[in-house]
Amino acid sequence: MTAAVQHAGMSRRTNAEWLAALQGGDGKDAALSDLRTYLLRAALFTLRRARHYVGHLGSSALAQLAEDCAQESLTAILQRLDTFRGQSHFTTWAYTFAVNTALMAGRQERWASVPLEEVLEGTATPSLAVGNPAGIDPEQHALRAEALVAIREGIEQLTVKQQQLLRTVIFEQVPLDEVVRRWSSNRNALYKLLHDARRKLKSYLLARGFDVEEILDLFAVRA
C-alpha cells in the first residue's frame, strides 16, 4: 500500500513518509500532530458508534474519554512503529489502535459495575427444558432430547474455567474484554481457552454419535 491519504489541513503522506517523519525525520512535529488528529477522530467516531456501551455518559465525559484514548493509542503506536509492515495504509493501521483502545474503554464503562460473580464463579451447567412443539413426531422429539443431554454432558466435561468462560461469553454475551479484566488475563489466553472448549465439545458430541451440523438440522437451525 503506497497511496497517500489526506484530510483537510493535513499533509498528504505515503506510508514511507509517515514512518520517516515519526521516526525523527523532517516534519516530526507536524506528523505527530496530524497523527493525533487521526486518532482523536477515530476515538470519537468509535465512542459515538458504541452507544450501547457509553450511552450513559454525557458528551463532555465522552469527549474526555476520546482524548484519553487518542493519547493512549498514540503512545502505543509510537512504541510499535517498527512493527508496521506496510501491508495497509498507515492510517488504517493507526485507526486499529485507536478503535481497539476506545472499544476496550467503552466496554469497561458498560460492564465494570455489573455484578458477574455468579456466572463467572459458578459451576452449574444451565438446565434446558425440552419442549414438545406441535408437529414434532415422537422419534424426532426423542432425538432432540438425546442431543440436548449430550450437549449438557459435553459442557460438563469441560474444565471449570472453560465452563465459566463459555457461560459468560457465549450464553450471557459479556464481552471477552470484561472477563480479561476481571481475571487479570489477556485476550489471546481466553480466546484459546474458548477455542479448546469448542473443539472439545465438538469432539465429545461426535464421539456420542452427534455431528454438530446434524444437531443444528435436528433443531432446524442453520450454522
Partner: peptide, 10 residues
C-alpha cells in the same frame, strides 16, 4: 444459547 454455542462449535 445452545444454538449460539452449537453454531460456534460447528
Amino acid at each position: 444459547n445452545y444454538e449460539r454455542l452449537l453454531r460456534l462449535a460447528a
